[in-house]
Write a protein that binds this DNA or RNA. Sequence first.
DNA 1: CATTTATTTGAAAACGTTTTCAAAATGATA
DNA 2: TATCATTTTGAAAACGTTTTCAAATAAATG
Lengths: 338, 338
Amino acid sequence: MPNRKITIEDIAQQANVSISTVSRVLRKSSGVAADKREAVLQAVSELDYRPNVFAQSLASGQSMTIGVITQNFGSPVYDGILQGILLGLEGTDYSSLFADGRWDKTIEQNALQAFVDRRVDGLIFVGGQLSESIMVEVGHKTPLILVARTIGSLAENCIHFDNFQAAYDLTRYLLDMGHRNIAHITAKMHYQETVSDVSQRYAGYAQALTDAGIPVDPQLVVEGNLMQQSGSLAVEMLLMAKRPFSAIFAANDQMAFGARLALYRRGIRVPDDISLVGFDDEIMAAFSIPPLTTVRQPSVEMGQAAAAAILDLIDGKPVANQIFRSKIIVRESVARLR
Amino acid sequence: MPNRKITIEDIAQQANVSISTVSRVLRKSSGVAADKREAVLQAVSELDYRPNVFAQSLASGQSMTIGVITQNFGSPVYDGILQGILLGLEGTDYSSLFADGRWDKTIEQNALQAFVDRRVDGLIFVGGQLSESIMVEVGHKTPLILVARTIGSLAENCIHFDNFQAAYDLTRYLLDMGHRNIAHITAKMHYQETVSDVSQRYAGYAQALTDAGIPVDPQLVVEGNLMQQSGSLAVEMLLMAKRPFSAIFAANDQMAFGARLALYRRGIRVPDDISLVGFDDEIMAAFSIPPLTTVRQPSVEMGQAAAAAILDLIDGKPVANQIFRSKIIVRESVARLR
DNA sequence: CATTTATTTGAAAACGTTTTCAAAATGATA
DNA sequence: TATCATTTTGAAAACGTTTTCAAATAAATG
């Protein structure tokens, strides 16, 4: 391997041109004679030249870097989105910087600051709870995409999934299967200023019931925190209330799994005694006992869309506000009520 | 907000010192009079100065960046490790660059190249299948830590988990519970040069059997690919072979879940008819039906250890070859054979 | 063929730091 | 108080690119 770091200057010398010319062919800009271009390219590969990204960034102002701020490393849906982003960035010249905000405003703010300091060319938020005004301000300075979060004034920049519609459809499905007393496990979100995915799911559930002429019974709506454990607790509370129900709609699969375990402990069969549906279609949904009926959230695809969108934004192209359709995945956790 | 980007020069002017002095106090190096230091600090906060990382990197040769190459974004164990890394880097001046090699040598190689081009100060591999010689060469140039992979000549740099011992203990546990015919679902790894986690688990299983005077029956060892689906297939194959067995040891939880589903489909009860154990203790293990007995792999902790280690390595401190102990998590998927 | 216009080129000026080196200021020693 | 060692300081030279600007060359026009 070469002892000394070889620079653009070495290439220039080897190819018998000026460094400006070298830079030009590397930058793929126009106006370079074919023979010189050839000579440069030849020298580049001969010397195995690797441009210094810092120098490039310093001179050009571009970092060739995308900052990704997630909130929930380890959650299947969020990880799926990250995976999609990584996939979407593969093969481009951009690398991705990651940070986990952990649903903590301060941590998220720090991560944002770190990324701004690093002059990221684009910013992708996966969830998040920074105030709308901060987000707008950020979006003003840096290309910005939001996934799994919707902000009204930034609608264009949101990779959108219609949680309301999906929850509505899923509830409708339960209704069609003959269920009338449907419990819902939701979750309280920390931030108020913006409409959260989870609250939209609740809204869809409520609307479907209302449209079917069934009043929403507060006793059948209980709050978890999106983790499995809280699903178990929710079922305990539901059972305690003595208000009969034949189906449970959990706002995400993880809570559905927790619910499933609590039912198992009580000897309540699924779906024979109680039907259960989740939301997200994470991998385990297909392998739970029984396989879980749920609605698919195309997380990887959304991540890829986010990557494509941020790239477009950086290129100055307009970005179409992508909205993903849901799809109910019918498996074996719902029984038809006769 | 300030219109023009403010630089070290603005600070120098405001504080009435030279830029060298400003740089010195910012670099925390010695030999700066208290009053000047104060003045600089004051100017910095007044003007809300943010150093340009590119210029810093260009001048100093440090990128303040750690490259993380994983293989399996979306797999619970690997994601846990990544989460730990992020956690361990939080609050330091380092940011982390991520890439997913997807168990593809070419992709992994490209990711490595991209990181080297970005002059990362440290490199963490989570799994991986680049040849030992490449890894050694890389480790020669850049501080390097390997998690979830062991390379003999790089033992110091490996965050180690004793897969052999854990698998041995787990098999021993099955033996103690009275099982004599224990099937094993393993996985073929793509790379041969290095001892893979999974093959170590197989070795532990085999050794425990041998030590108990039970020969390893090839008919009871079947290969999956670590995904849930392959666990189901493995069980089908096992059942097909007509060779009786009372317990299954899957080399990871995901395949155990798959196995569980296949058994459910056949109406075979767990643990009443067949006992089942996994490996990893991913979150879902506690919520499967029945809750899965498995061995805990402290992924988040290993990630944090990796972060700490790479930081030490960068600081020139020697790094202790961390080895994590396993712990069997006994839940409800194993029955005592009478 | 003489001009004008368009295309290629290279010199040199950014980009914003860190770091080396020598000068200046300070403190200690005799 | 003069001398020497130390500590503080600032000027200027890296770091390796991109980019502006003007010069040089080539092509097109009348």
